[in-house]
């Protein structure tokens, strides 16, 4: 639209000003403050004083077995959760990538688990997982399998969270990958078929390379979300039994708002922020490439 005239510049500036002011007030200033806190010991529950301890909180993280356990649980959601969501989501997207009557209704129905609040997802699965009265153990018993202690066993409860997460978020992969598939022009399939390619060759040689940017975006978004997993942990297990199924965000929440160690909690949240910033950078870079449909 040509160069900016002076009056236009003022308007452009005034238009972004409120957003900048609000974002600075509720994100940048608090973040700077919490960085300072992460260098302090401050246990507000005890009415304790704030004392500057430098990198002490960060060093403490490295020897905190409970923190590493929560990292492991979060990693499990990333690896098994997002991995399964991608595999299932891609298969389902390929199945749905054809025209049939009632298709848009079917797609909408598939999306429901992702649209409702994670809190509701937690409620639904808490009932399903109930050891004595839940329908899942009942079905297993019908098949001759002994009841599984889904939420009460430390070796199983982290996987129960992963399973509920898979149910909730597979739809995201379905709808995103489906959009990617539909952006691939039909004549490319035709051309490949005329050249004598079989189904697998069409998929690996034509479809997947074209789908790749969408796959990367979808996985990055899910990884960022899964890294923040909190709601399902609260609703399903409260991190239990013991500390077996705590996620990083959940342990961070306990540190800040149950034990009131504000300094240590700030340090923990800064570590997560660093991880997210790293992933977000990759995401934004693929955005700038504009390679996406």
């Amino acid at each position: 639209m040509g160069g900016l005239r002076k009056r236009d510049w003022w308007m452009a500036f005034l238009f972004v000003l409120p957003v900048v002011v609000i974002l600075l007030a509720i994100s940048i200033f608090p973040m700077v403050y919490s960085f300072y806190l992460s260098l302090c010991r401050w246990d507000i529950g005890m009415g304790g004083q704030r004392t500057f301890i430098g990198a002490g909180n960060y060093l403490r993280l490295f020897s905190d077995a409970r923190f590493f356990n929560s990292l492991k649980n979060t990693g499990r959601v990333l690896l098994f959760g997002v991995g399964t969501q991608f595999a299932l989501g891609l298969s389902l997207a390929l199945l749905l990538n054809r025209s049939f009557r009632g298709r848009s209704l079917v797609v909408t129905l598939f999306l429901l688990p992702m649209m409702i609040s994670p809190v509701v997802v937690g409620c639904i699965w808490k009932i399903i997982y109930h050891y004595q009265y839940g329908p899942l153990n009942y079905l297993l018993n019908l098949l001759g399998i002994r009841s599984v202690n889904w939420l009460g066993s430390g070796s199983i409860s982290p996987y129960s969270i992963v399973l509920a997460d898979i149910w909730e978020w597979t739809p995201f992969m379905v709808i995103t990958l489906l959009a990617g598939l539909q952006a691939i022009p039909d004549d490319l399939y035709e051309a490949a078929r005329v050249d004598g390619a079989n189904r697998w060759q069409i998929f690996s040689g034509v479809v997947f390379p074209l789908l790749r940017p969408v796959v990367i975006i979808a996985i990055l978004i899910r990884v960022m979300d899964a890294f923040k997993i909190f709601d399902l942990v609260v609703l399903l297990t409260m991190g239990g039994p013991g500390q077996a199924s705590e996620s990083v965000a959940f342990y961070n929440y306990l540190t800040g708002f149950k034990y009131f160690s504000m300094g240590y909690a700030s340090a923990m949240s800064y570590v997560q922020l660093a991880v997210i910033v790293a992933i977000a950078n990759v995401f934004l870079r693929s955005f700038k490439g504009r390679a996406v449909v």
Binding site: K228, A249, M262, S266, I276, A280, F287
Partner: peptide
């Protein structure tokens, strides 16, 4: 007007990606 350029736009988007647990603590205080 492309005010602030691409980096400014991406800065705004990056705020959306902050982990809630990281921002809630300073906001609480």
């Amino acid at each position: 007007f492309r005010i602030g350029g691409d980096n400014f736009a991406f800065w705004i988007l990056s705020v959306r990606m902050m982990p809630p647990i990281a921002s809630v603590l300073p906001l609480f205080l």
